[in-house]
Design a protein around this nucleic acid. Structure first.
Lengths: 201, 201, 201, 201
DNA sequence: CATGAATGAGTTTTCATTCAT
DNA sequence: CATGAATGAAAACTCATTCAT
């Protein structure tokens, strides 16, 4: 039988899930405590028992989801041997986020909210930096020139495409791969991949 | 001497300006009719005299601003002779929108709102298409391969960088120009620009 | 060409018509000056030029319509030779007001509004009295006993049926005539009609 | 000792009472949430905690009152042994509703509102049918011809008189009983009532 | 831990009425 | 006579938050 504390933790988790879903569905500012409580199947007063405020709940929920997204994208990079392959995997991962899916919407909402929310902004800047760093490492290993800046541009392009997909569904990875490949001219002298098959993990 | 109608039109314009400012400052969903009316210096009931609803006012205000931004960016392209020069001008124009300025914020807000607002989405898709087309024309004239897709990627990258600047102010045009230039390898055989100063139009 | 005064009178009439229509369609309290002005095709400020207030306009409009209804019903009575015939004509006239038509609704609205509107109540009491008197005269001429009270009950029954038709459309004149006929047992000794002048009115 | 739920139920009841009073006093469309809340002695937001909307509250309140009125009138019928006695009791009951009392007004308001309110109309049609059926049963037992239609006419006459009393207070049960009695010519061969004193149900 | 009733400020919107033109 | 912009006070309804149980 679950202890009181265990049930409490379970409810907290359900509230976070419900909040993430609702931010994606309705938009950050359209989510109310009542909606979250109802979706989580608990009383309306319980939100303020587990979280200091509604923004605090939404922020925590959004960061949790975004960490997963960023880490899974970065993990995809690690499975690549060459720079073009890394780009392929990255863009293939992008196809999981067609722009109107929950994760994309939540990210967009969070990005925007970050403009006016210091705590969220700092946390998201950390995430972006983490992703850029892992991407930079991959590019550098393949001899791509200016790897840090290239990573920054790639990350921005990926987010921009996620946004533009809302307006133009034709913006698939297949459509942009040939173009973005130009960003990663690999150094032919840099012997990549093969010699380190299993990589760092 | 001002006729009733003239004063009315003036007030309408003031309401649109106030709405655009407030969307940028507070976010699309945080703008209330009272705020707009107060900023415009009119009574709270007047908003609904001039506009059918608050969303209608915000949409009209946002589209007005975005049309100006897109057209001024596209106009900048027309002043370029070569593709790299066009990219330079485009990115220089981007520096006018450091990410935390009114126009950038309004665009971001609108992009996100478009996710759940059919009318706004359609209008913005039109704007995006207009911009891409003008950019495509420039790239094609310079012999850039795959000009339509390259334009799409460039447009997405520009918007993505605008967003990321919120998280990383170091993402200036100077930082990204060297990287983005790789996207527009010009055809060396295509003799462009110089010999035809007055341009194509 | 119409003089200014003539046009003014014309507009006044249009406002009264529009008001009567709208009271029937939307209910007394749901009618606004803007709606009336729009329906009449005039500017919103004009209502208060021609009428002291919105209630004054509605009252005048309603009374005008009700006078017509009452007078046409009473006129129908005058075309009858016998009491049963008078009842038939009265009930046939009722079929023109099936309960969900403009006139029925306006009358119901006015009756109810009269509860809280002294001026309207007085005017409607006058109308009711006028109708009862004409009906009493007919009944008396046919030797119906207790003609004044019978007229009062008949008038009440007619209005009640108009209301109940909203709830039960089967309440037609055909359905109630056999029953209501019992209310007017004619005195067999009273020689009515026969001499029938020629003069139907 | 009162549980939270008990207090909640009590408040809900107070809101229904307040709503019924106010509909009678001010008219259906003149009742606002604030008025109801103030009369019930609760905060303005509480109305929407207990009821989905203002119309929902008013409808529930009105139906509650009308059910009581209809049932008490029908119960009066059950205490009669003969048809004339039933009519007497029915009309005596009518004297409890002089036309300007809360119940009468509420019924009138509801009848009118039903014109434009499907849910209310259906519920009221049910009530009317219930009353007519019980009245029909009584009339039939006494050998009154055409009992269903007679009941329909009687019910309409009662409602119509309730309305007309607003315009003419002289319309008492004493004044109309002699006339309405003509509607119920009892079958002299039908031996009713006496021999089965206790037995109707 | 959890409930759900309660509060009071907030929202968008509608409206009668006035008034300068 | 007529217009229509403007005002300010409502309206219904929603919400984050509190608190007694």
């Amino acid at each position: 039988m679950a202890t009181s504390a265990e049930r409490g933790h379970h409810v907290r988790t359900r509230l976070l899930h419900a909040a993430a879903e609702l931010v994606a569905e309705q938009g950050w500012n359209a989510v109310s405590t009542r909606m979250v409580a109802e979706r989580a199947g608990v009383g309306p007063g319980l939100v303020h028992y587990h979280f200091a405020s509604l923004p605090a709940l939404l922020t925590e929920a959004a960061l949790q989801v975004m960490e997963n997204v960023v880490d899974s994208a970065a993990d995809a990079l690690d499975r690549a041997r060459t720079a073009p392959q890394a780009l392929d995997l990255l863009l293939a991962d992008l196809d999981h986020y067609p722009g109107d899916d929950p994760a994309s919407r939540l990210i967009s909402e969070a990005m925007l909210t970050a403009t006016r929310n210091q705590a969220l902004r700092t946390a998201m800047a950390d995430l972006l930096d983490r992703f850029r760093t892992r991407l930079t490492d991959r590019l550098q290993a393949q001899g791509v020139p200016d790897p840090r800046r290239t990573a920054a541009v790639l990350a921005a392009a990926v987010d921009g495409m996620m946004l533009h997909r809302t307006l133009d569904p034709a913006l698939t990875s297949a459509a942009v791969t040939p173009v973005l490949t130009r960003l990663i001219p690999t150094d032919p002298t840099a012997q990549q991949g093969p010699q380190e098959p299993e990589g760092h993990r």
